[in-house]
Every structure is written in C-alpha cells, then in structure tokens.
Design a protein around this nucleic acid. Structure first.
Length: 543
DNA sequence: GCGATCAGCT
DNA sequence: CACAGCTGATCGC
C-alpha cells in the first residue's frame, strides 16, 4: 500500500499513476521494493520512466513483467546517492537498506523542498538506523541529531502492535530450534513463498545441509524469484525433507489436510512452520467483543515457536517495525513531521508524533508550506470568487457522499483565500489546524488535555477549472477544531478506529484521503442501501 | 477483447 | 483484525 506524495514534491514513491492530468504527473518515480502492492501501475502502456530502484528490485520486476524494458529504470544501490535534475532545482537521493525484503530500500531526498526520508516498507532496527547519515541520527535517546529531517514518510503497518518483536535473526533461530525439536517429522513445510523470507530458507538450508524443494509447477513465481535471490538453496527434487508451503490460498485448510493425511496413514506428522507476524498482531487490539475464544486462549510467546489449534507452528518473523521500534526510531531521528505511508493515519498514534508534530512548529518560510503547494506570498482576494466550489456540488457529480462526520462540511474558499486563512491562524489563539491526520496540539498540552479535546472535523477544499468540473480536483484536506462541541476526540478518525474497513468510497476519493494521510470516511448506511439497490437493479437488467 | 481496477477473501 | 496476494467481477478504452 502506497500513498501519493504531496503536490509540492516533484517525485513519487511507489505510486505510478495513471494521472488524468499531465499537470499532476510527477516528474520522477521511485520504487522501494518489488512487492506487488508497491508496483501497481508500472506497465509499458503507462510509462513513467525513469523509475529509480535497486538492481535487485528491477531484476525481480523484469522477471515478473518481461514486457517491461531495462531502459525504463535507473539503478540506485544501497548506500549510494544520485543527483536528480528537476525544473525546481536538482535534488539528491540516497538509498538505504530498509530491512524489509531483498532489494528493499528507504530513500532519503535532500533538496529545496527539505530533507525527506521515505521508508517504503521497513523494519527500522537499530542497525538500520545506524546506516543513515550520522548527522540525522541522535547518538542516544533524548539527544537531538545535528540535523533534523523535515519529514518522514513512515511505514506504520504494525504501529499499533504493542508487542516487542524478535529480530529477524532471532526468529530464524526459533525456526531452526523448532525443526531440531521435531526430529521425527518426515517433511518440514516452510510457509515461505513470499519475497522477504529468503533468509529463513538460507539459514535452514545451511543448518541442516539440505536444499529446499520448491514445486515449480504450482509456485513458479516463487521458484523464479528464489533462483534470483538464493539459487543455492533451491532444489526441484521433492524427496528433500524441506518443502516450501504456499501461504495462500487457504493455508489453514491445506495444513490441516496434510496433518490429517499423515494421521490417517499412521505416519509421523509433518512439521508446518509459518514465519510471519500476522498471526501475532491479531490479538493486539481490543477484540473482546468480536474476538473468538480461540484468540483469547492464545498464550503467545515471542521467544519460541507456538503451535496453533490447526497444528501450524508460528514464529514471529516480521518485515515491519513494531510500535516500540517506530517510537525509538522517531526519537533518534527527531523528524519535524511524520506521515504514515499506510492508511488509517497510524503515525498519529505514535507518542513521538503526539508530542512533537504540530503545525505551529513551522515558520512561514519553512519548506513545509511549499511541500503542500501552499504559497506563502498571498495576495489579497475577494472573500468569494468564481473558483469557489461547494462540496455538495462535488459529491453530486461524483455520486458519492461523505459520512456523517462531514455533515457539517461547509463550502470552503479555494486556493489563495484559503491559504491566507490558514496562514493567518495564530497558533496560540486558534489552534490547531493540521494538514495531515488528526490535529496536532501544542507541545505544552498533556496527553490528558489532548484527550479532552473536542471534535475534529474535516473540510475538503476543492479547486475548479472548466476542465475539471466533472472530476473535481480535491486540493487539500484540512482539519479544523470546533470549539463549541462537546464530543470527545475525533469523529474524523472514526473510520480508522472502526473495525469495519473503509471500502465504500470510490478509488479516487480514497486515494485522495490516503494521500493526505486522512482516514477514509464511509457513506451513510442509507446511501449504501441506495447504491446497492442501484447495483442490484443494474445486475438484474443484464440478465 | 483486453488490461486496469475494484470487491471480497484469507 | 490484516500482511501481501489471489480470484472473479466490473469498468473503460
């Protein structure tokens, strides 16, 4: 899952259009790693070259999509920098190991827009941080680095997970121990067919002196990428004790079937190991209502493999940072602003962000404003001009609506007058408007006060040109704090806290919200009924 | 008819 | 729940 970069930046990371307007097309594209959800949109028909990425990521991508051409890509390797020419002045980009999967990198951009770290997907361990330029990393917790990053686009995938994850190395040792503890298992199935689990295979292979069988016929893509990354561990001989087990689909069903088959034949059971953090983050949140008894009964240990009710052994092998790792990384890096690259604005839940990221921190000449395409040189304008578009108008034309959160939406004057409005805010008096996520409060405000704050609600600011009348071009999503309401915090983020997903808005609008690091609101249930009824009647007609 | 995107699922 | 990814339906050219 990737987010669009703010409009003021000339580059995109892990997003590849297509953009309807060439005006919006980013001039430079960067790819952090080869997982498919980060390569969506890369195709010969949508050439957005050059795409900057590591040799390994490019190789994996070319292998999967041979119709792409090498010439679309520019190689950048871990630890190396490139200077990129741009209309707005050149900038420097450096790649760093993201500790996520083979070829995965974080990008550090340094230019007139500021110093920006985009982590892609990452597991931000201490070692990982130490590979960043010294000036950006504090020597110890609480000690500011010599140079502050302006923004971090941060992988907060497991930002909610309060558990301490074992290191990848430790997880691999757990896997090896688990295998040692099952000498009678005739076959060891490793659910490791995903890019990023190769080290598990490598270490198992080295420890037990055996290659690992990959079924070329049913798992060709995995076979191909293993032949690029760790060819020395792969065998096509099914008599090997170690087999790759597909993680999808229906892992549990297939695993149960394997075990049942052995039992029915009175054979020793095979050993099935799934190295993934997914199983461990399940009971992280408050599932007291929806969570099954099975979940409650789980006595999860992170220090050794755990067998579940289906007979699968789990080891917490995580390719993303835990909350603890993120907090610690943010403290050492002390960025001015943090944006989550995953939806639900999970960055806002980090203590570091709650305590340190507020808009009042930015002076009028800070590049922050430029990043958001907000021009500080504002000329006086009429209160209402011809560019004003109301939300209701946009929504009608899109056949979409926002949910009750937005029922208080008011028309907002676009562009310059809006900017002026924003900029005229005095931090003390009218706090706070934030441009990303939940409004950030002043640093003096305690967590308790923070909690007492009132409803935050969303305003969408749209620009209009004659061309874009049909498809409004939402420009900025801002939040404002309403002082006269009594509700406790954040109806705005109701979506992210809700257990339901936010799948009810059209893709375009969803992308917009995500790019602003704002949770996607859901239409009113009544509207959903209408939309569904319309869908049903349409389906009916087609018969 | 094809590729891109979305919905739904695990 | 949700990683990354699959399948099948639908959309749009």
């Amino acid at each position: 899952m990737a987010i669009e970069m703010p409009r003021g930046l000339p580059f995109a990371v892990d997003t590849f259009g297509p953009y309807t307007s060439t005006k919006r097309r980013k001039r430079h594209h960067f790819l952090t790693h080869a997982h498919k959800d980060h390569t969506v949109g890369i195709s010969p028909s949508n050439i957005v070259f050059p795409i900057y990425s590591t040799s390994l990521t490019i190789s994996l991508l070319l292998q999967r999509q041979p119709q792409l051409d090498e010439s679309f890509f520019v190689r950048i390797e871990i630890g190396l920098s490139l200077i990129v020419d741009d209309l707005d002045g050149e900038f420097k980009v450096t790649a760093f190991d993201a500790n996520h999967c083979p070829g995965a990198v974080m990008f550090l951009f340094e230019g007139s827009f500021g110093n920006i770290l985009h982590t892609g997907d990452c597991r931000l361990t201490h070692d990982c941080l130490q590979s960043l330029p010294e000036k950006y990393v504090g020597k110890r917790l609480g000690e500011a680095p010599k140079c502050c990053l302006d923004y971090i686009f941060l992988d907060c995938t497991f930002g909610k997970s309060s558990h301490r994850f074992p290191s990848k190395h430790s997880a691999i040792i757990q896997i090896i121990n688990c295998i040692w503890n099952h000498p009678d298992a005739p076959v060891v199935y490793l659910a490791c067919d995903m890019l990023g689990q190769e080290d598990v295979l490598l270490e198992v292979s080295k420890t037990f002196g055996s290659k690992i069988y990959v079924d070329k016929a049913t798992n060709f893509e995995c076979f191909k990428s293993l032949m690029v990354i760790v060819p020395e561990v792969v065998t096509e001989d099914p008599s090997s004790r170690f087999h790759i087990f597909r993680g999808f689909p229906k892992l549990y069903e297939r695993a149960s079937a394997k075990l049942a088959e052995a039992r029915s034949k009175l054979q020793s059971e095979p050993l099935i190991i799934r190295p993934s953090a997914q199983w461990y983050v399940c009971d992280d949140e408050d599932y007291s209502e929806s969570g099954s008894q099975i979940q409650k009964q789980r006595k999860v240990r992170f220090s050794e493999a755990v067998k579940d009710e289906f007979g699968i052994w789990h080891v917490c092998y995580s390719m993303h940072s835990s909350r603890e790792e993120l907090e610690s990384a943010m403290q050492l890096l002390s960025p001015k602003w943090v944006v989550s690259t995953v939806p639900s604005c999970r960055a806002m839940e980090l203590n570091y962000v709650k305590r340190n990221c507020f808009i009042s921190r930015f002076s009028p000449d800070d590049p922050f404003w430029k990043l958001l395409d907000i021009d500080m040189e504002v000329s006086p304008v009429a209160a209402v001009d011809t560019q004003t578009v109301t939300l209701s108008c946009c929504l009608m034309s899109e056949e979409l609506t926002l949910d009750s959160v937005n029922s208080k939406l008011v028309p907002v004057i676009e562009s310059s007058s809006m900017k002026k409005q924003l900029l005229s805010l005095s931090p003390e008096k009218n706090l706070p408007i934030s441009l990303f996520g939940r409004a950030r409060l002043s640093s003096q405000e305690s967590d308790h006060q923070l909690h007492e704050r009132k409803v935050i609600h969303t305003q969408c600011v749209y620009t209009k040109t004659s061309l874009e009348l049909e498809k409004p071009n939402p420009k900025e999503v801002v939040e404002s704090l309403q002082d006269d309401t009594k509700e406790e915090t954040v109806s705005f983020s109701s979506c992210s806290s809700s257990k339901e997903s936010c799948k009810d808005l059209s893709g375009d609008l969803r992308k917009l919200y995500r790019s602003m690091n704002a949770p996607v609101p859901r239409p009113l249930p009544s509207l959903m009924d209408l939309m569904n009824a319309r869908k049903r009647s349409r389906n009916h007609l087609s018969f």
